[in-house]
């Protein structure tokens, strides 16, 4: 029984703390990521989500604790070898290779990622084209990456990460700035990726998106894990809402609703002036 549980854990985050100067951006964060699951990582701005992503992907070495993947401490692995373990990530601030075409950007990942050593240059380009079709960028494959719009750059980030053939994919706000339809498309894509056996860790501000895709939600506040569980349970908890959004936020929402209502009323009383 316990052996089965053990093998189903992809990432183990144990007592992770990260200090910047005098500030603990993360402290005592512990949770397991089950293979094949989708973990939604939420929390207010500055709660340490991106820092945790950086620790998991080996960009930062944690001050305390460790992240292990398949028994290996990530901190011991050089950045360029993390993807060879099977962990890939996207960046919140997108980093395309500006002078390369969109397809070339993805192909670089296919060339040097986990399966890269086995792929020829040509095979890498073929793989890149497949992935561009998956994320919906095939129409701009030949364009320089610097020409892409922000939503397309986010798609490119996902394609680049997928080109590394990961088992675990960390997605840092890939849906920010997308409109409702685009968010739906992105979710569809992520579900599809997950179905193929890729474990996802998703940082996102859009609550709806998190709820609809996650199997587990982890809530961070001020660098600490304050809740973990099924999305509906976690978000229903008043404690999480207050901690996550702050009691002031709850109050403010109420005030906003009032103002909104007053405005609506005012509009009805005063018709807009013509030609103003």
């Amino acid at each position: 029984m316990s052996a089965a549980v053990e093998s189903s854990v992809a990432l183990r985050i144990t007592d992770v703390g990260m200090r910047f100067g005098g500030l603990w951006a993360l402290s005592e964060v512990t949770f397991d990521v089950v293979r094949g699951s989708v973990v939604g990582l939420i929390g207010p701005n500055g709660s340490g989500k991106t820092t945790l992503m950086n620790v998991i992907s080996g960009v930062y070495k944690p001050t305390t604790g460790e992240v292990t993947y398949a028994g290996k401490r990530i901190a011991d692995v050089p950045t360029h070898d993390v993807c060879h373990l099977g962990i890939a990530r996207t960046f919140q601030i997108v980093k395309p290779f500006a002078s390369l075409s969109v397809r070339e950007n993805v192909a670089v990942g296919a060339m040097y990622g986990r399966e890269g050593a086995k792929r020829s240059t040509r095979a890498s380009f073929e793989r890149a084209q497949e992935l561009l079709e998956v994320v919906g960028l095939a129409r701009v494959a030949e364009r320089p990456a610097s020409d892409l719009t922000i939503p397309d750059r986010k798609r490119l980030e996902v394609a680049k990460a997928l080109a590394l053939d990961p088992d675990v994919l960390l997605l840092d706000e890939v849906m920010a700035g997308l409109n409702a339809t685009e968010v739906e498309e992105a979710l569809e894509l992520l579900r599809d990726v997950n179905k193929r056996g890729v474990t996802l860790i998703v940082v996102e501000h859009l609550m709806k998106a998190i709820v609809s895709i996650s199997t587990t939600v982890v809530v961070l506040a001020e660098g600490r894990k304050i809740a973990q569980g099924a999305p509906s349970d976690v978000l229903a908890s008043q404690q999480v809402i207050e901690a996550y959004l702050g009691s002031r936020w709850v109050k403010r929402q109420e005030q906003l609703a009032e103002i909104e209502a007053e405005r609506e009323q005012a509009k009805r009383v005063q018709p807009p002036q013509a030609g103003a």
Partner: peptide
Amino acid sequence: ARSKLGYAFVAIRENEDAAAVLGIAA
């Protein structure tokens, strides 16, 4: 330039950190 090597070089030129994330030992 046309080989894998060339793409590693250009990736390093464009963004060394992003290149490392893609598995390139800069």
